Amino acid sequence: MATPSRLQHDRPFTRAQLKASGGDVRVLRRREYVQVFREAWIRSDAIDADTRIRAALLIHPEGAFASHFSAARLLDLPVPDHRFEHVTVRRLKDRRERPELKSHVTRRRRGLTTVRGIPTTDAITTFIELAGWLPLVDLVVLGDALVERFDIRPERLLRACRASGDYYAKAAARAAEYVRKGVDSPMETRLRMLIVLAGLPEPVVKVQIREDGVLKRRFDLCYPGIKLVIEYDGRQHAEDTVQWERDLVRREELDDDDYRILVVTAKGIFREPEQTLARIRRQLIKRGMPDVPQIDEAWRDHFA
């Protein structure tokens, strides 16, 4: 019984392609073949992170491209898990409806790029498209990662959003106003957004302290004028003795220079945000920041 060619082993293929290569469709009954979508198959040992979007594009006409959540994943940008693959086509008749597959249609111009041979919307286009799918904080998480990964200035992202005629461009522009350069992680973004949406002064991102031109310290979130550092601790080195000892030495040095480090964990963002905000506000006042506002309850709309 003839089997698909080596190329088709590595990538999704259709029944028609299998027949055209001289293969026998009965091989698809074998355990080593997996149906990705209706009409799209692949060998189980060839499945990788790109398999589903390759299969989704395979069953669409030429000119289709990955978009939305699928594009974000291809671009290695942080988005919540999403069960659907997203493909955009130019004509209504080119849509292909399948379970766990979302076909979009647009005649608007789209910024496109290619990742591992897969056509996809570029980073800014993906950000604008996802404004219709993501809540504000998740969209800012995406934007912070986008400007860092692709070396795009936040001002450029904001201009693109404001110039866009897309339906969700206004929501994209709102999120882009909060995007900052130099953010290292999604949790750092979430912590900063918790502070800002509560109406407290925004901490400065990526503060660097230099002495004689040499970098001495670097803070992810900081209020330099009052020497208050807000630090997210993911506990990834809770069992790392060497890192723990380094952290102790670092904090002792900061104490000597009159810095105050306020450490926030995931629990303080997801389970106890109100207590976290109270801690930060108390330290702002204690360290002499003028006119610290009361906490704005608007943060509750974004941090359930």
Rank of each mutant, 00 (worst) to 15 (best):
D81V: 13
R95E: 01
T51M: 03
P80K: 05
D76A: 13
E39R: 14
T88M: 02
R43H: 14
P78S: 08
R83G: 07
T51E: 08
L74K: 09
I47K: 01
L58D: 08
W41L: 09
A66L: 14
T51N: 07
F37H: 04
A40W: 04
A49K: 11
I47Y: 06
R95Y: 02
A72H: 05
L74I: 06
P61R: 09
L75W: 06
E62Q: 09
F65P: 01
A72S: 07
R83H: 14
I59Q: 13
I42D: 00
W41E: 06
D94G: 01
L57H: 06
H82F: 11
E85H: 09
T88Q: 02
L74M: 13
R38H: 15
R83W: 12
Y33R: 00
L92H: 11
V87H: 07
A46S: 15
F65W: 13
P61K: 12
F69H: 14
I59V: 13
A71E: 06
D48L: 13
D76R: 12
L75I: 05
L75S: 01
R95A: 00
R90Q: 06
H82G: 01
W41I: 07
L77F: 02
L92I: 06
R95P: 04
L57D: 12
I42E: 02
F84Q: 12
R38Q: 15
F65H: 11
F69L: 12
H82K: 11
A64I: 07
V87I: 14
L77C: 01
L74D: 04
V34T: 14
S67I: 05
R52P: 05
H68W: 04
I42K: 00
G63L: 09
A64G: 14
V34Y: 13
V89E: 02
D81F: 15
L75G: 02
A72W: 07
R95N: 01
D94T: 03
E62Y: 09
D76I: 04
R52K: 12
W41M: 11
A55H: 00
L75Q: 05
V36H: 00
F84C: 08
H68K: 00
I53S: 09
A56C: 11
T88D: 04
V34R: 13
V79A: 05
L92A: 13
I59S: 08
V79S: 05
E85K: 00
W41H: 15
P78Y: 00
A55S: 10
G63E: 05
V34I: 09
A71S: 14
L57T: 08
A56L: 11
K93A: 13
L75M: 01
V36N: 00
P80D: 03
A55E: 03
R83P: 08
A49G: 10
L77N: 01
P80F: 00
R73W: 08
G63C: 11
S70K: 05
D94Y: 11
S44A: 12
E85Y: 05
H86W: 09
A64P: 08
H82T: 01
Y33A: 03
S44W: 10
L75A: 08
S67T: 15
H86I: 03
F37Q: 05
R38K: 13
S44K: 15
H68S: 06
K93D: 14
A64L: 12
D50W: 12
